[in-house]
Design a protein around this nucleic acid. Structure first.
Length: 577
RNA sequence: CGGGGCGUAGCGCAGCCUGGCAGCGCGUCUGGUUUGGGACCAGAAGGUCGCCGGUUCGAAUCCGGCCGCCCCGACCA
């Protein structure tokens, strides 16, 4: 490609809308332009990077035994109603009415494709002999994000690889899941990304196992708890907290419980300030409605209750914070003064609360708290549970180590779905005993443009992007210092053509611009390898080679440069296999 | 959807408080000089000052409403 024949609008300055490096550099390097919040055009260079990521994904999916297909973006809403997800998705699903003759048809733009593919399988699969089967597509998804952000990291329209596996049994699903899990690791490795597979919350999509593939990055939206010593890693939503071994009960040195006046203190912070204590000395009492039950959940004041854990602990379907009227009913006080002592409902206790000494908590009467509260002595409970979000420094649930927490970008998510969708959409097959059974499903998503954004976000320096060879829009830039110098220009042109003939992905910067200007652009865009041709070098029969990630350049004979470049590229490609 | 910020030339910004010719830097175009890390000189083009309404002799500037974008939070197969 000749630079002058394509559109590469680089920018010297960063647009003020962009805050994180990936957004800034993708704009400045001329990869993307914004159309509206959360919606971006991929310019020629951006599209090339995207296509490279797609191709890696495609190769690894095929290698893992999956077959590519292409499903529609346009879905009938009726299909979404059959699985109940029209309501589940709410405003995230983009849906609208269109006129067809005298009728109105209700359509949606696909945010994911479990419904469409399961409906397809319902009509196409009839026998166990057709299974197992894994299908995938690479396609644009639409989600009306409440708040798109971070440039291309979280958008309303994005490209996803989504795969779906269909098996006769849970054992089969395990094998299909394993194959996708392995493929995801290979994809991320080939993209040059460092990553962490972590245990994840499967959420409303259902199913009993799920892992996310996380790329550590300060600007990621997810938090991952990770144990260095045993390798345990889990999304903060999911991460367990190791069992606290402290079994000490109350002692004679413990303070006696007393009531203190705390007028007008609605929050933990206000109580702490008034009583001169810290939030980790407080017991936070949250009143929940779990299906038909009212439950008080006790967590330490500085901890955050994890509603997923609470829901599981109670074996509940639906969990919501109680209404003010319910709180008054069980505590006899307005919101803000709840405590475990004398409360008129069931109480469950986080394990960190079980080992507290001389704690402060609500007195279940207006404008009063209790001081010197000691669990067991002052209020009874049969057991403690893990009910809160894990935090950095918490004990690892698998070994004796402690966990750290890191920000991550989620680039992939794999689920074991089971039969939720096949049952809802009646996708069944006959097994060898002539029994009609629902297909056992798994689904596997990967954000293709997130791969690109995550790469830029984690691989850049002050001057610009540091593309891995596998994702770079062009692997090599040929840069003649002065295109009006006939010998320089013809040498550059020849090298460019020879590289192209040898299958190298190369761009020739044929612009009539000053050297410094072209260097800045090459660094900003971050082509992995740069070949500089100038008259000084040519006089001695030399051209210059420089890797974007290296400090120093090297001089190579004009006659050998093409061979050297091809060999070097092969060497680097091999190391990323 | 709550809180905050911003909207003036392609990009980055000043001007607004205190109403009176719409500016600066970069980029673009023309000519010349330059040519290994975002050159220099001379000239030029480019604007419904986000939109609508109000106040005023006069509004980028003051007032009201709306829209858009960014950030924090809530939300997120």
């Amino acid at each position: 490609m000749l630079w002058s024949q394509t559109l590469i609008p680089t920018m010297k300055e960063s647009p003020s809308d962009a805050e994180i490096p990936s957004h800034q550099f993708m704009l400045r390097a001329g990869l993307i332009r914004q159309l509206m919040a959360g919606v971006y055009t991929y310019l020629p260079l951006g599209l090339r990077a995207l296509k490279k990521a797609e191709q890696i994904v495609r190769e690894e999916m095929d290698l893992a035994g999956a077959s590519e297909l292409l499903m529609p973006c346009l879905h009938p809403v009726s299909l979404w109603e059959r699985t109940g997800r029209f309501d589940d998705f709410g405003s995230v699903l983009i849906s609208f009415q269109v006129s067809r003759r005298e009728n109105q048809t209700h359509l949606a733009l696909g945010p994911t494709h479990e419904e469409v593919i399961t409906d397809l399988m319902a009509s196409q699969i009839s026998s166990y002999r057709q299974l197992p089967l894994t299908l995938y597509q690479i396609q644009t998804k639409f989600r009306n994000e409440e708040r798109p952000r971070f440039g291309v990291l979280r958008t309303s329209e994005f490209i996803m690889k989504d795969a779906y596996s269909f098996d006769v049994s849970l054992e089969g699903l395990d094998r299909s899941y394993e194959a996708m899990y392995e493929a995801y690791g290979r994809i991320l490795h080939r993209c040059g990304l460092s990553f962490l597979p972590v245990e994840a919350e499967s959420g409303p999509i259902g199913g009993d196992a799920s892992h996310e593939f996380m790329v550590p990055s300060d600007n990621g939206e997810d938090q991952v708890l990770h144990c260095e010593s045993c390798g345990y890693a889990a999304n903060r939503e999911r991460a367990e907290v190791g069992k606290i071994s402290d079994k000490s009960g109350p002692t004679s040195e413990d303070d006696l419980m007393e009531t203190v006046d705390t007028p007008g203190t609605k929050t933990i912070d206000q109580v702490c300030e008034l009583l001169g204590c810290t939030s980790d000395q407080m017991i936070k009492t949250l009143i929940y409605r779990a299906d038909d039950r009212t439950i008080a959940v006790l967590v330490r004041g500085d901890h955050e209750a994890n509603e997923s854990k609470i829901t599981r602990a109670l074996d509940a379907e639906k969990l919501t914070l109680a209404e003010e009227s319910t709180i008054r009913e069980v505590t006899g006080a307005p919101v803000g003064f709840a405590g475990p002592i004398g409360i008129q409902c069931e109480v469950i206790v986080d394990q960190s609360v079980g080992v507290m000494k001389n704690a402060v908590t609500g007195a279940n009467q207006e404008n009063a708290h209790l001081r010197g509260v000691n669990p067991v002595r002052d209020f009874a409970f049969t057991q403690t549970m893990d009910l809160r979000f894990a935090e950095a420094g918490d004990l690892c649930p698998r070994c004796s180590g402690t966990m750290d927490m890191q920000q991550c970008i989620e680039v992939g998510h794999v689920f074991k779905l089971g039969t939720k969708y096949s049952e809802a959409l009646d996708a069944r097959f006959l097994d060898e005993n002539e029994t009609r059974l629902p297909l056992v499903m798994g689904c596997y998503g990967m954000g293709v443009n997130r791969l690109i954004a995550a790469s830029v976000e984690t691989r850049h320096d002050a001057d610009g992007i540091l593309w891995p060879l596998a994702l770079a829009p062009y692997e090599v830039v040929v840069l003649p210092l002065n295109v009006s110098d006939e010998t320089v220009w013809s040498a550059a042109n020849e090298i460019y053509k020879e590289l192209k003939d040898r299958g190298v992905d190369v761009i020739l910067d044929d612009r009539d611009a000053r050297a410094g200007f072209k260097f800045k652009d090459a660094d900003l865009i971050g082509f992995p390898l740069r070949v500089v041709i100038g008259h000084r070098g040519l006089k001695e029969g030399l051209v210059e080679l420089k890797w974007r990630e290296d400090q120093d350049s090297s001089n190579v004979s004009r006659t050998e440069v093409v061979d050297v470049v091809v060999t070097e590229l092969d060497r680097v490609r091999e190391s990323l296999r």
